[in-house]
Design a protein around this nucleic acid. Structure first.
Length: 665
DNA sequence: AGAGTGGGCCTTTTT
DNA sequence: GGCCCACTCT
């Protein structure tokens, strides 16, 4: 790898460049975009053109002659990376396809597929999603004969969460349990003993969970100087978006990736740090100047997104937080209308109000695509979904379940996984249990008889294996074995594999098992189309596991051209914007969430979340709360408006009086 | 004994 | 939709 340094000429407005930076950027943005190499921290408030700054920085680097493959752009979603590259590409001529861009997990996976052998892992490992990790952990709890009855023992998903937190924050399990799971304090030792078992089991199955991708990648960079040097040399410029939501593990990876040149530019906003429960630590951004002494600091504080009335509410909402960089967001836009406070009787009336107002706005000419409903938790949107369906208002919801996490998608993917990685115990058992007459026990037994065989797929149809198959499952099993043999040679065309699996029997299973089989079949059809983009099954499966909710939409069957209202959690709305935003279920204990209030930091994070939600709105913002909570079987109980609403001076809001027509629900 | 089904109760945020 | 448990069917 050539290690030529590409230096940047000092920016001078009069010098002829393709892009007229000084015209297209404000002075603060311009300063960051044209800054000299070296560590740099960009504090960019909500709606201040953070993305724009990054795009222009990329374009500027390329225009200065830096080859695309020497730039690394880390973003929160792959979609964000793609979007930025696309827009940077529009600004300049050179080809950016060789630039590395994407999420941390994406980058780690890309590196590990190349170098996993150094860690004793084959490079065709499977990536476990949350559900897989939980199932594996539960299996271990059973095998280790842990008495989960006598004393409340954490379930698989809780254990996985504990380990995840330890890995991502680089803390000990004892510390994590002590701080976040004190009620399991006396089980600490047992919890510690199980972690290596979990690690071993994944290794045996040649599988990695999300945390392993990061942890092993960091390990590779730390322990293998040749790998570290290779990438640290390659990436002369490293850009990181949403830096406030990185955790210790990710920060360490960044530091090593940028260790040769130290041309590291991180961009973020401490007020929008909302992922501490995933180990994110906004101390990373606060202490960046300490870790990189002499770094340049840029503040971008002009907000182009929202009308001043919305911004004032946002500023008031975040003000009570003690732990933040002092900053003053200035509005650039002309005055518009005040945010509206809407007390609804209950969630039903809340839904009715939102739907009604949407229709009115649509009449007034606002596109449905420019409206969004945001909430704290997925289930807060239930009534609204029903209401919108009743009124024929088309909506797109990024639900708790991702497109790719749905059972039928995972079932079919399991077939491909078995062929790609015959050590994948979870995939094998999942697929086997779909056959009639095979349940947990039979699947366990069969796995023990088939695992480790060199000609795994062909072996399934052999005499010794057939003997272990329950009699009533025999014919299904034969079909299963035949299907796997059939798709094995098709690894280069994952979409074909999917079609074969569906036609060879999965379709029959769907029709027999689900009333909505047609919709599920259509999903699988879309999945096959989506798979065509990939060169082989392994790539396709990686993508499937690492895709975010936002990206999943591109693969989900949504008719193009249709106008859709967006329903989303605040977390998933990060980085997005709409003309009109409805923020619903603003009742205390719903938003802020009751469980987050156990600590002071918890309340501050909820407040940042509230701030993120408010700053998604460009023109109109509705703050809606239900006053009554439905109490099954008993009288409804009164609930308090969110404590965050009390921090907003009443003069900044317009009070909405619900007309009686809403009260009938 | 193991597979499969249905009811009751709860639901934070996600790569 | 998930989880747990009780129940029936084979």
């Amino acid at each position: 790898m050539a290690t030529k340094e590409y230096s940047l000429k000092p920016f001078r407005a009069e010098r002829k460049l393709h892009i007229e930076y000084a015209k297209e950027l404000n002075p603060q943005q311009l300063e960051a975009v044209t800054s000299q190499p070296g560590p740099a921290l960009v504090i960019a408030g909500a709606g201040s053109g953070k993305t724009r700054t990054l795009i222009y920085r990329v374009a500027y680097l390329i225009e200065q002659g830096v080859p695309a493959q020497r730039v690394l752009l880390l973003t929160f979603t792959n979609k964000a990376a793609r979007e930025m590259l696309r827009r940077a590409q529009e600004l300049i001529v050179p080809d950016l396809t060789h630039m590395w861009g994407g999420t941390f997990h994406h980058m780690a996976n890309r590196g590990l597929r190349r170098h996993a052998k150094l860690l004793g892992f084959p490079n065709d490992y499977t990536i476990l999603d949350r559900e897989d990790a939980r199932d594996l952990m539960n299996a271990i709890i059973v095998e280790e004969k842990i008495d989960t009855k006598q004393q409340r023992f954490p379930k698989g998903d809780v254990l996985v969460d504990i380990y995840s937190m330890a890995v991502n924050t680089e803390k000990s399990i004892e510390q994590v349990v002590g701080e976040l799971y004190p009620h399991f304090g006396d089980l600490t030792e047992q919890i510690e003993i199980l972690q290596p078992k979990y690690q071993e089991r994944k290794r045996k199955n040649t599988a990695m969970d999300y945390d392993d991708l990061l942890a092993y990648w960091l390990n590779l960079l730390q322990e293998h100087a040749e790998v570290r040097e290779r990438y640290a040399q390659q990436f002369q410029f490293v850009l990181v978006d949403e830096y406030q939501d990185t955790n210790k593990l990710q920060a360490d990876i960044i530091d090593l990736m940028a260790s040769a040149h130290k041309h590291l530019m991180v961009v973020g906003d401490d007020s929008q740090s909302i992922y501490s429960w995933r180990g994110a630590n906004f101390q990373n951004i606060i202490e960046f100047p300490k870790r990189y002494p002499g770094c340049q600091v840029f503040k971008i504080e002009t907000n182009y997104r929202s009308v001043p009335e919305i911004l004032e509410v946002a500023n008031a909402a975040i003000a009570p937080n003690v732990h933040q960089f002092p900053k003053k967001l200035r509005a650039d836009r002309k005055p518009g209308s005040k945010p509206v406070l809407v007390p609804a009787y209950d969630v039903g009336q809340q839904a009715a109000f939102v739907a009604q107002r949407m229709l009115e706005l649509h009449e007034e000419g606002v596109s449905l695509n420019e409206m969004a409903v945001l909430y704290r938790s997925h289930f807060h949107a239930m009534e609204l979904q029903m209401e919108l369906t009743r009124r024929n208002i088309p909506f797109l919801i990024t639900s708790g379940l991702r497109f790719f996490e749905q059972a039928h998608i995972k079932d079919v993917a399991a077939y491909l996984k078995i062929v790609v990685n015959p050590a994948d115990e979870l995939a094998f058992k999942r697929a086997a249990k779909l056959l009639r007459g095979i349940g947990d026990k039979a699947a366990d037994k069969l796995w023990l008889t088939v695992t480790g065989h060199p000609h795994f797929v062909k072996h399934l149809d052999s005499q010794p294996v057939l003997a272990a198959v329950p009699a009533k499952a025999r014919s299904d099993w034969k079909q299963f074995a035949a299907t796997l043999c059939q798709i094995e040679p098709l690894k280069e065309t994952p979409s074909e594999m999917i079609r074969v699996v569906v036609e060879a029997g999965y379709e029959d299973y769907l029709t027999a098992s689900f009333p909505n089989y047609a919709a599920r079949l259509e999903d699988l059809n879309q999945l096959a189309l989506f798979a065509q983009k990939y060169e082989n099954a392994e790539q396709f499966l990686s993508e499937l596991a690492l895709m975010t909710n936002l990206e999943a939409e591109d693969a989900a069957p949504v008719q193009v051209g249709d106008e859709l209202v967006r329903l989303s959690t605040v977390h998933q709305a990060k980085g997005l914007e709409w003309q009109v935003v409805f923020l619903i279920s603003l009742a205390d204990m719903m938003f802020p969430n009751a469980r987050a209030l156990n600590s002071e930091e918890g309340e501050e994070e909820e407040r940042r979340l509230f701030y993120v939600a408010i700053t998604r709105a460009k023109d109109e913002l509705y703050l809606v709360y239900p006053q009554m909570r439905f109490n099954a079987g008993y009288q409804d109980v009164l609930q308090k408006p969110s404590r965050f609403l009390a921090d907003i001076p009443p003069a900044l809001l317009e009070q909405f009086e619900l007309k009686s027509e809403f009260a009938q629900f």
